[in-house]
Design a protein around this nucleic acid. Structure first.
Lengths: 284, 284
DNA sequence: ATTTTTCGTCCATTTTACGGACATAGCATG
DNA sequence: CATGCTATGTCCGTAAAATGGACGAAAAAT
């Protein structure tokens, strides 16, 4: 499979057995699998339903969008609904993903969900440092704090709440993401977010400088602009393609954050980020 | 087919139309669907893989557990893997749920995930009261805080962190869940958790009294045992079968929690809990 | 090196799924 | 409230898709 062989369909003349002229292998000429047509179609349907899960999909639209016959789609949907993979609103007749889809997702999450993958590492960092660790994920021009793990040190700095969304570049984890992006994208982001930075006490001008510094160091570092006496260190997490999309960061009071300790923490973050990336990369 | 193959291959006698004697309807005698065998089998496989997703499944085990032929299972898995629904570890050959399963789950979540369903209501409560709202979910003999939404009132009480897990009955939301359970289960829970209550400053004895009070009132209420001056109100959320499995609660400083206000908040919680239950019930 | 177990593939057979045609429900419009 | 119009749901003869017995290859165990 995968490469495209001879285009001749081999018309196989002298027909004793009327049926099945074409040779059947595990994949046909175009590299498509055989013996799994209906499963492929069912998955195609699921993807199509997922793509419109907010509004729901009507039978006819699904048939059109998948280029399948209406009866075929209907029969498959009935089965998928029966098994809970999809759900049909009894009033509108529209189809949505069902509870089984949700439950499979929950089961699969530990191998794909950044938060779950990162969790053990965050615990290790919090235990090693005693300070609070944050996991930040990029979301368009923003960064969202998707997890936090508190260390044992009794004095806690102002902590980023889970779910909090701020313009890219504002937080230290966020800054690590920005710094790891290609030059021109950094500029675009800073320009786009310019008007929003003020209210977070960040000057767009200094941001580029900070990003360059982070690039040189290999980690981001910053005194919290709004809170004096708080210092944070961050490190980016990259996806399969090398694009930074998340970051780990540690935040604590400046007196605990000596230069030496900054280096230690940066190393710790780097190691854990690598570990996470490895799991994301092969998915295995 | 599907049932044990009679060894006679049935040489198909007087062959005008060799095929199909049995009448075919959309469901056969036993009520099972027709025209969807392979989809049913594929979903069966997915369920089986999900059930062993921690360890992964070997081809032969899947064949055994699903009572399907190995070649059939293999062919289907190849397709499912091709589409990303499952993933095969290249070293061990074991099968796991794939990224598509995770992504479908994410898409389906807004209609099934308690946190997502409850979110709008929590925002409404926080806006109406100005205080912090908590969403608690039962997990065995514990309760876990799965979401929190802060109100605008500047003085915040000690807040339960997201992800925090405590013995059932310790928090006010937790207490609401316990109170809504059947009498004998309450006893069992209190007995089982007895040794753990101490460290949370809750006496197992008073807990039963508090639960009875909550049953009478229709909502749970408590002065935080460890923090003087904090008062909370909670209301249970029940699933389709009427079993309480989660709760909403509001917590604030006692001076804000007058008797009159307790009633208002209790009503608010009750209404939002009802709304959430309705969405859970029909799933639509 | 040899046996045993498991994975992967082939291909003739026939059962399964397909889809044209029809039936029925919902919903505007004349 | 018929009347067309559009949508969902179902039937069933046919053909193509999926099945599974058999075999080969690759690991794993002995």
């Amino acid at each position: 499979m995968a490469f495209a062989p001879s285009s001749t369909p081999d018309p196989s003349p002298n027909t004793v057995n009327a049926q099945a002229t074409a040779t059947r292998k595990s994949a046909d000429e175009s590299g498509r699998l055989t013996g799994t047509q209906s499963i492929e179609r069912a998955l195609l349907l699921l993807r199509e339903i997922a793509a419109h899960n907010r509004t729901g999909s009507r039978l006819l639209d699904l048939a059109t969008r998948t280029s399948l016959q209406r009866p075929t789609v209907h029969r498959m949907l009935k089965c998928l609904a029966h098994e809970g993979m999809v759900q049909q609103d009894p009033d509108t007749h529209r189809y949505y993903l069902g509870s089984m889809a949700f439950e499979l997702g929950l089961t699969a999450a530990p191998r794909f969900n950044l938060r779950e993958i990162a969790h053990p590492g965050m615990v290790r960092i919090a235990e090693a440092t005693g300070d609070t660790v944050f996991l930040t994920q990029r979301s368009g021009l923003d960064a969202v704090c998707i997890d936090r793990h508190e260390g044992t040190f009794p004095i806690k700095t102002f902590t980023l709440d889970i779910g909090m969304r701020r313009p890219l570049g504002v937080g230290t984890g966020s800054l690590a993401i920005v710094a790891a992006l290609p030059e021109e994208e950094i500029q675009t982001i800073i320009n786009s977010n310019q008007p929003r930075y003020e209210e977070y006490g960040v000057a767009g001008g200094t941001l580029l400088t900070q990003a360059k510094k982070a690039q040189k160091l290999g980690y981001s570092i910053r005194e919290a602009p709004t809170l004096a006496g708080v210092r944070s260190v961050g490190h980016s997490i990259k996806n399969q393609s090398g694009v930074p999309f998340a970051a780990l960061s540690v935040s604590t009071i400046s007196s605990r954050m000596t230069e030496k300790r900054v280096l230690e923490i940066a190393q710790l973050l780097k190691n854990e980020a690598r570990l996470i990336e490895r799991q994301l990369n092969n998915g295995m």
